[in-house]
């Protein structure tokens, strides 16, 4: 346990050094943070306007849909803050700079997260979390202790789920440096998918994304649990309570894939 704390401290130090480096360019960073908060603020305003106009969507009321959208936003923006720069791996692989991560006595994945950490994303993450809290307040939730705990856990597990996607997508670079935005299409597509109730979609597409890939366990199923509603699509409520476990599975798959990828790292001739 003491060892884990020491290790965490080491990463903390490296992270602070990273932030200190970025702080040298603080004017542009502050502008970026403000800029992205404005853009994201507009996004949020759109969501509100959308729900006040159309109200119900896919069989859910406006505040219920808002809860799903907000949970998705909180999960995604927090994941984006922590792992959203994972696609920078491409540059590290292409240039061979990834070598230097492998030469240190630390996890290469955590180092990547730390050195590509983009402080400018912090604004959006804060907004995402605030939106979620607001949505929890306005939604009609039959509060219990279990639900309160669940409400605290699911944005974290949703973030873990998205972070796993970011990492899995980035790992492709070990084989395919030109992968470009393919992986991002997946993660950003996932964010958009999870922003709306799964009942809005139809057919095999819905089943594949909701259950097959597990996007339903980010915002849709957890929101049903919080709202105390059964799933119109028929997933047992007990399974919906297990949503955080899906994130654990996703994280395991992503790290296994990452390890496999690192062994295929080719470096560059020098």
């Amino acid at each position: 346990m003491a060892d884990i704390r020491d290790t965490a401290r080491v990463y903390g130090r490296v992270l602070r050094a990273q932030v200190r480096s970025q702080w040298q360019y603080r004017t542009s960073m502050v502008l970026e943070i403000l800029g992205s908060m404005v853009v994201n603020g507009l996004d949020i305003a759109t969501v509100f306007v959308l729900f006040s106009v159309t109200g119900a969507l896919g069989g859910f009321t406006g505040t219920e849909v808002l809860l799903m959208a907000a949970l998705s936003a909180a999960s995604f923006t927090v994941a984006d803050l922590v792992a959203g720069s994972a696609d920078k791996l491409r540059e590290y692989v292409r240039s061979g700079l990834f070598d230097s991560l492998l030469l240190r006595p630390l996890s290469a994945l955590l180092q990547l997260a730390v050195i590509t950490f983009a402080l400018r994303r912090i604004g959006r993450a804060v907004q995402g979390v605030v939106l979620y809290i607001v949505a929890l307040c306005v939604a009609d939730i039959p509060w219990t202790v279990e639900r309160a705990l669940f409400a605290a856990i699911v944005p974290i597990s949703g973030a873990v789920f998205f972070a796993s996607l970011f990492i899995g997508g980035a790992t492709v670079a070990f084989w395919w440096v030109e992968s470009g935005e393919v992986a991002n299409a997946f993660t950003y597509g996932g964010r958009d998918f999870t922003s709306y109730p799964s009942t809005m979609y139809g057919g095999w597409f819905r089943d594949l994304f909701t259950l097959g890939i597990g996007f339903g366990f980010v915002a849709y199923f957890p929101s049903l649990v919080l709202l105390g509603k059964p799933d119109p699509l028929g997933l047992p409520t007990a399974v919906a309570w297990g949503s955080p476990l899906v994130a654990v599975v996703a994280a395991c798959v992503a790290t296994a894939f990452w390890r496999f990828g690192v062994r295929h790292y080719r470096s560059t001739g020098s």
Binding site: A17, S21, G96, L97, S100, L103, S270
Partner: peptide
């Protein structure tokens, strides 16, 4: 300990 002539182990901006 490793030194690769073309790769730095140092923090560029610090």
């Amino acid at each position: 300990g490793v030194v690769f002539g073309q790769r730095s182990q140092l923090w560029w901006d610090l």
